[in-house]
Amino acid sequence: MSTQQGAPLIAARDLTKTYGRTGAALRGACVELAAGEILAVTGASGSGKSTLLHCLAGIVTPDEGAVVYGQRRLDQLSEADRTLLRRTDFGVVFQFGQLIPELTALDNAALPLLLAGTSRGQARERADAWLERFGVRGQAELRPGEMSGGQAQRVALARALVTEPKAVFADEPTGALDSLAGEQVMTALVHTAREAGTAVLLVTHDAQTAAYADREVELRDGTVLEVAEAPDLAETAQPTEAPQVTEAGHEG
């Protein structure tokens, strides 16, 4: 039942990606995301963090290397298949800008369901439940421009989780928020992901945000450095606790 010990949910091997003349964003990056795991990817700006996330989420395809999701090679899927996957199995949250300014919070959260052809009433009902979980139900009929940044991010989280995806990809989700609003967003994300058994790939340059994760890897010059567990803290470290919560979530 548990995928915790078995094959990872998503595995990336030797990813290389180059953008124009700006040099390589990724050069041989390897990373694995286990089911239900919260993994932080940190690194200086320009280290390739976002590009790694885009490759893993199937938003862009790497120049070289493989991204394996379940039995499938994500990097070899057609754009249409990857789009479908993003809608059903993945959710994305960015720093800002992913909400559609013309739609209300409720319609924004219901968007992936609407795109999949769910009836409007049903989609809105399910989205409403997720807004409730993230504490922004009171803002359901507001448009993104009429909310605070923290509220907008929580609506974005609701949208990312409304399809009950296997993995959520969050790129600097607290980057535009003050520390208290950022903390609320992170707490909401981590709790909900644990409850739903959703894996989270969290890209951030902020150590305090990264500390919400079970595990952390660091990117430097486009390659992944595993952040070693400190020897004297290995026994007490939280990550060994976390999977239990996750597994319980899986059963439910």
Binding site: T88, L111, L115
Partner: peptide, 16 residues
Amino acid sequence: DRRLAALRLAGATPAQ
């Protein structure tokens, strides 16, 4: 264009 990209990000196919 931004809005359409956001729709794509939410899982809309190019045709959609």
